[in-house]
Nucleic acid binder design. Sequence first.
DNA 1: ACCTGAACACCGTTCAAGT
DNA 2: ACCTGAACACCGTTCAAGT
Lengths: 236, 236
Amino acid sequence: MFVTIVFVPARSSHPVSRRDRPAKPPLTREGITAVAVGLLRAEGLDRVTMRRLARELDTGPASLYVYFDNMAELHGAVLDRLLARVDLRPGALAGGWRARLIELLAAYTELLYAHPSLARSVLTLRPSGPNYMRLADTVLVLLRTGGVPAGQAAWGMNLLLHVATATAAEHGTRRESASAGVAEEEPWREVSAGEYPGIAWASGELFTGGVQRLRWAFDVLIAGIAVTGITPRPPP
Amino acid sequence: MFVTIVFVPARSSHPVSRRDRPAKPPLTREGITAVAVGLLRAEGLDRVTMRRLARELDTGPASLYVYFDNMAELHGAVLDRLLARVDLRPGALAGGWRARLIELLAAYTELLYAHPSLARSVLTLRPSGPNYMRLADTVLVLLRTGGVPAGQAAWGMNLLLHVATATAAEHGTRRESASAGVAEEEPWREVSAGEYPGIAWASGELFTGGVQRLRWAFDVLIAGIAVTGITPRPPP
DNA sequence: ACCTGAACACCGTTCAAGT
DNA sequence: ACCTGAACACCGTTCAAGT
């Protein structure tokens, strides 16, 4: 469904036939992002490099810098395109404000779980695409519905999305480097109560929880956000 | 203060004099980590590459793989060496358990703030060096002192350190790409209440807080952890 | 056993020179 | 204006061949 635009050299008096070149879609921000998302789904973010993406688009890497200042910006566009598939409006969710909020955050986290390296990139991004802003807005609306004051809601929204992103970055990577899992737990399981009393005390629950742990984290955050006032700014 | 060990070829009957080669410390896990920390402090983690580090040690990159399986492991060793400078014992802190816990977490975060790219690396690492385990242990001991049940403390410790690490990774990077700061806020400040009612409602506090925000986040987490029970595991 | 040169298979970004 | 080849200055990791 691409419009093919073929460059016609000035010295030629008739258009180049379609046969002479394979159809090549014109470069646009959206087109590049779409191809990047395809590459992400097919091979993971590690392969969504400027060079590889350029090859996929049948051009040189320099061409992409016409549309994106750098790779971080490209990743931001990729995130927003992925978010377009999630219905982020408060009305799309069921239950009370708290249940809907957790549902929403879980949907966002699930999206990033599938692409942990994107989550790692997003963590340092301050996304500002329309779909991310819809997500942030919905979180804020739900917190307001729950009677949370604006200041706590503002800081809390950032904290909630931050934890969601960071958890996806952390968890997902672990899954990527799969086999090491048990070996990583070992130094924590073998400690003596004399040397590490706290670890020995808590060791039974140190590696439990799995996915439920994330929902617990959201519960913790929402409970804390609702009751913890932000530091009042100094009066003017 | 390095011991110089010079390889003596079998065909030579007398030792090679020190003059023939510049003093070159022997490679050890600790020695490599020490040089890596020096490089980190001098030029940032971006320059602590296997190749650069090898050049600094006057050898080839392949030599480092005798001591570290990969770069992530090297970063883990670097983190633990940095943590050695912080006194992580519960007795080293003043005040009630809550104040001491926040103090401890702030010290850890401060350490990582100075090296945001290290924080980004640590986020996907599950560190297990002795100093990190001391930190984790102290967090657990303080939570126990506060009467938090073991399960909540175990999950809570992870969540607290996770937020600290992620915040350092996020914040630090922002500071690195300094000038973009104001431009990033723009799309959030200009929203209409019609399109993004939540953002418009909370916009006054969206970018406030600075460093106090992190302490607020720890307050939120501790408050939430103390009152939120973990999901009971299914009975056997 | 410990160490390493060279190779493999790549990177992001810039810039001068296209059309 | 839009696009790009080539160059700049690098990467992590592996492996065969040292000593």
